[in-house]
Design a protein around this nucleic acid. Structure first.
Lengths: 216, 216
DNA sequence: TGTATACGGTACTGAGCAGTTTCGGATATA
DNA sequence: TATATCCGAAACTGCTCAGTACCGTATACA
């Protein structure tokens, strides 16, 4: 540690909430930087992403990033963790009265775009997950779990109103569409379309719970 | 290009199959090197993998690798492409007389281990697939397609003997187990177990084709 | 037996990148 | 107004790694 290390450092230890001299940190930039990180992550993956790319995308200086996050890994962790589950509130899920209606109503174009973007981000960090349990946990909470939860909710509701029998395997069936879309995007490199999701609903999910899809 | 560049190079252009002077290349080492590459790939991912690691694992010199493959990318491509589909021959698939029997019989411990390894490899190259269509194609042929084909085969046979109705969505249902196992390994970071696969067969696949799993 | 090439091993080179420092300017407290 | 910290920008440092060169040795053909 040389005296030069103190240029941008705190002169002496102090409490986090104590008033500090000088210009205040502009925390409105945090969102821009995290958003830029997610974009680069989706486009190039974790290893292809450089901190310079993120800084340039956010029109920020690299030092600004390092004042807020101690490393690239922490920045990415924070970016993934801040990917909020948009419709995690069950009351905002569709309630059409039938399971098929609910499942179809959950396929909206923005939802589709959002899912594809999250899967691109996932593709960019998959190889990191085994090295970083924190990142795996963050991705789990932000990307993986919300979709399964929404599916479980509409299945549970269909069960409670007697539309489907009580012995269906809700936990597994709730993951079918998510798993198949992930597989299609990550492995088969094909786009997610509304038609594909409908074919999963009518060809797999509804038959699996004992319902017939409507006449062709 | 300096004269020094010619040390290990061919003095003049010649046909590939023309007889060459000097010690012959030991092509029995190819398999060792490719196997080492797959091991490192599964353990560390494409970007974490270094050519030195592969050479050391195969007890080979780095120059030996570069005599055979022009770059790291080509080595990995070849390694993935040489992952042969072991049971791509339909006649070696089980034929128990029932769909459930066939599906259960296809879960053997070596198959499970093999699948998990291939998925680890897949995790290591997922972020490369969008940059390298050749690698995506190789992974498709070596890892993705064989499993779906085996499932399609036993489903088609069940259909032909009248065990399941003719209107089932074979193409989608054939991918259910593969997609869900991939999802479980890559995203949920949970191991693949025999019990999990049986729960998918009994909880999703058989109900989806209109069959009842046996009494609990 | 001489020459050309392969082998494993090691050292080197050049590029790319994480993280640090510096700079001129802006903004906050005292 | 003096000082401390922020900002974007750019230069710098140190390390890692793909790819190359070279060594001593082994093997194949002429």
């Amino acid at each position: 540690m040389t005296p030069l290390d103190l240029v941008d450092a705190v002169p002496k230890p102090r409490e986090d909430d104590a008033p500090r001299l000088g210009r205040k940190r502009d925390h409105t930039r945090d969102a821009d930087i995290l958003e830029a990180a997610l974009e680069v992550l989706a486009e190039t993956g974790y290893d292809g992403m450089t901190v310079d790319m993120v800084a340039a995308r956010a029109r920020a200086g690299k030092a600004t990033l390092y004042r807020r996050w101690p490393s690239k890994a922490e920045l990415v962790l924070d970016a993934v963790a801040c990917l909020k589950a948009p419709d995690s509130d069950p009351s905002r899920l569709p309630d059409t009265g039938t399971l098929r209606g609910d499942l179809i109503a959950m396929i909206r174009t923005p939802t589709l775009k959002d899912a594809e973007r999250k899967l691109q981000i996932m593709a960019g960090i998959v190889s990191m997950l085994s090295k970083s349990p924190e990142l795996a946990e963050a991705a789990q909470q932000a990307i993986v779990e919300p979709r399964a939860r929404a599916n479980r909710f509409v299945l549970q509701r269909a069960l409670e109103r007697g539309e489907i029998p009580a012995d269906v395997d809700i936990d597994n069936i709730a993951m079918v569409s998510t798993a198949m879309v992930s597989y299609r995007v990550l492995m088969l490199r094909k786009p997610t379309t509304r038609e594909y999701l409908i074919s999963i609903i009518d060809g797999v999910i509804l038959p699996a719970v004992g319902l017939k899809p409507p006449r062709l």
